[in-house]
Design a protein around this nucleic acid. Structure first.
Lengths: 108, 108
DNA sequence: AGGTTAGATAACCAAGTGGTTAGGTACGAG
DNA sequence: CTCGTACCTAACCACTTGGTTATCTAACCT
């Protein structure tokens, strides 16, 4: 699976997006991350592994805790990818796009 | 499944992303869309249904063809969502963020 | 009417996902 | 040393996913 697909797949789960949102406030232990959800520890563990494989989090080791930290690098790729479609949802951008195309035509 | 999850899930497949890319060049029939891939028709049909349910394409009816058209609206949500994480990948934005925080502190 | 083309649906299969419970490891505290 | 806590792995389950082949409908063209 390529990087972008892995990132999108990881983001497709609301629990995992919530975990990322929590991590914007700083590193957290697995226990802390699991608190807001009423699912078992192993389930959280699996989500964290998916996020880790997608490169969205990094995990350290501190005594019996395994603190998680956000790594937003793959999200940049997502933003860049989505931006390529901006002209298809943004009307003013679409007009600019049309104008540029027209100018290119006139140039010929 | 919420809208954002459905969109991310739809985008997690390279074939579906390729279909979207093709549709940026204009509407296309199912046959045209399936040409670049060596997978069966029904497989393409399924991909299109996923894209349709995610609101990423709309389908018309024209004689025996069912032309597909891009609808990028959900991608705007994706872009907006990703932008919220910009400060975590963009160093200069992070500095700006820190500056603003500092200014807010001084204000108090 | 008969044949061809575009496309959808159905039934099936292997692999993946999101959850569970049970049991294991590693560490700190008493 | 033993106990509790944090976390992981393993095994299992129901459901989904991405693919297949076979069959169907609908429209067009002779």
């Amino acid at each position: 699976m390529d990087q972008l697909s892995a990132t999108f797949a990881a983001l497709a789960d609301p629990t995992r997006r919530a975990i990322l949102a929590r991590l914007t406030e700083g590193p957290a232990t697995v226990k802390e991350l699991s608190e807001p959800f009423d699912i078992s520890g192993p389930a959280i563990s699996k989500h964290l592994r998916v996020l880790e494989k997608a490169g969205l989090i990094t995990r350290g080791r501190e005594a019996q805790w395994r603190p998680c930290q956000l790594d937003a690098t793959p999200l940049k790729e997502v933003a860049v990818w989505a931006e390529n479609y901006r002209r298809f949802w943004d009307a003013s951008y679409a007009r600019l796009d049309a104008l540029l195309t027209e100018m290119k035509e006139t140039e010929k």
